[in-house]
């Protein structure tokens, strides 16, 4: 039980530090920026029914 608690605590701390790092270093938005080019290319290549 104590071992489980210890593991949970360590996991929680690690997760917390990871989340703080993501927040602080803006990693979430840097990742989204990486998605931009491939997604825009996909949208440009989509077949569209262009009409008024």
């Amino acid at each position: 039980m104590l071992k489980l608690l210890k593991r949970l605590c360590i996991t929680a701390v690690v997760l917390f530090v990871a989340v703080v790092c993501i927040y602080w270093f803006n990693l979430d938005m840097k990742l989204v920026k990486l998605l931009e080019k491939p997604l825009m290319q996909h949208y440009d290549n989509m077949e569209r029914d262009h009409r008024m």
């Binding site: 803006n26 938005m29 840097k30 920026k33």
Partner: peptide
């Protein structure tokens, strides 16, 4: 160029 924050 992108003005993305290097860090928050």
């Amino acid at each position: 160029g992108t003005a993305i924050y290097k860090h928050r």
